[in-house]
Amino acid sequence: MGQNLKNNTLSKILDIKKLMNVDKSIETANGLPNECYTNEQYLEYERDKIFCDKWTVIGVGSSIPNAGDVKPYNLLGIPLMIVRDRDLNIRVFHNVCSHRGFKLIDKPCTLKNVIRCPYHSWSYDFIGNLVATPHIGGLNIHNSDQFKKNQSNLKEVRSKIWMDIIFVNINSNEIEFEEYINPLDQRWSKFINREDQKLLVYSKDHGSFDLEVKCNWKFAIENYCESYHLPTIHPELNKVSNINDHYHIQGLPNRFAGQGSEKYEQPVKGNNKFDTFKNWEKKSLKNSEYIALFPNVMIGLHLDHFYVFWLEPLATNKTKEHMQMYYVGDKSANGEELKELRKENARFWKDVMLEDISAIEGMQEGRGSPVYNGGNFSPVMDQPTHQFHKWVANSLLYR
């Protein structure tokens, strides 16, 4: 009955048959229908069934490095806050006071002792406990026998950190994170094992940039998954690592997809190179891989650097893209002698991402066509993108 109710709700927004057409074999499947990119009601449904039900990325740990660092995040209207506690653990809470529902944190900040509500000064420690209730029993009476503080703590969100990426499962109904990430962890164990993961250091000087794009968040994932567009959208990149040097990645059980290259060349400036991962498989030194981990993070793994490119959905036709870059050890990540090389590497990736904007915004504009049926797929070139479409469709239709 619950499944029928779910599909009845969805059927008021779009044609269920169109959504089911996505889950056919790639030769006969259509892509997601237009409403999945243009309809406001659909976006509300998607927020609950994808962003709240799944392991979703809301930031990186390096953005709050110190105890007491707090950063707000708005997930399509749901106010959250990311907190670094005194033991340097990262926690995520609903960004709302338990008293009168006032939003606690408006902008990134560093707090000394407590998270204090600006409305009535109720205060919480960094693990979410309500520790102060000024005048709750009357003027200068700060406690009350009729009120139990431990029943009004902040509401913590289920969260995990992997490779500095902050994942949340707001509805607390997804599989354990270790099970979720294991297929990708296993795939990448030949490149970067758990010990090498600890060597990753965020670049403080040329380690981040943000882009706002006028398109639905899904287009960025679809585009990132495939190398089919390299000759037309990235002609300079295609000269170095062309479409024939790429291979598809389809991670079962359907949690990620993407592409890899067999022609990666380390950036060089003079005699300077970045340090490399120690346990990288020797026969794969030229390999790099570009994974979209569903729903909203794109990752680039190379012999000498790693990036996290995650998506913040803002509206049906607006997305903020966040890029963070990491290197092997502090010398490569922040050493003065490699500063120019980091600058060039960051500029290279920003140029690549800027080139993609014309493609993903063009697809958004095309979805205004009433005759477009979701499109078709190349059975050879579009397999990873079709996998993402199927994942979205199945996430909406089934649980």
Rank of each mutant, 00 (worst) to 15 (best):
M1P: 04
Q3E: 14
N4T: 15
N4Q: 15
L5V: 14
L10K: 03
K17L: 11
M20E: 13
D23W: 15
D23V: 11
N30A: 07
G31H: 01
R47M: 05
W55C: 00
V57K: 11
S62N: 12
S63R: 08
V83Y: 00
H94M: 10
H94T: 04
V96F: 10
S98G: 11
I105P: 00
K112M: 05
H120Y: 11
A132Q: 11
A132L: 07
P134D: 07
P134N: 07
L139Y: 15
F147K: 01
N150A: 08
K155V: 04
R158H: 06
W162E: 02
I165L: 01
V168R: 00
S172V: 02
I175C: 14
N182L: 10
K190I: 08
L199S: 08
Y202V: 07
S203Q: 07
G207D: 10
V213I: 15
E226S: 02
S227M: 06
S241V: 09
H246K: 09
F256R: 07
G258H: 05
G260F: 07
K263Q: 06
V268S: 11
N272A: 14
N272K: 13
F277L: 05
K278S: 08
S284I: 15
I291E: 14
A292L: 09
F294M: 06
D304V: 01
D330F: 05
S332N: 01
K343T: 14
R347I: 12
M353A: 09
D356V: 09
S358R: 01
S358E: 14
E361A: 03
G366W: 00
P370N: 08
N373E: 11
P384C: 01
Y398I: 13
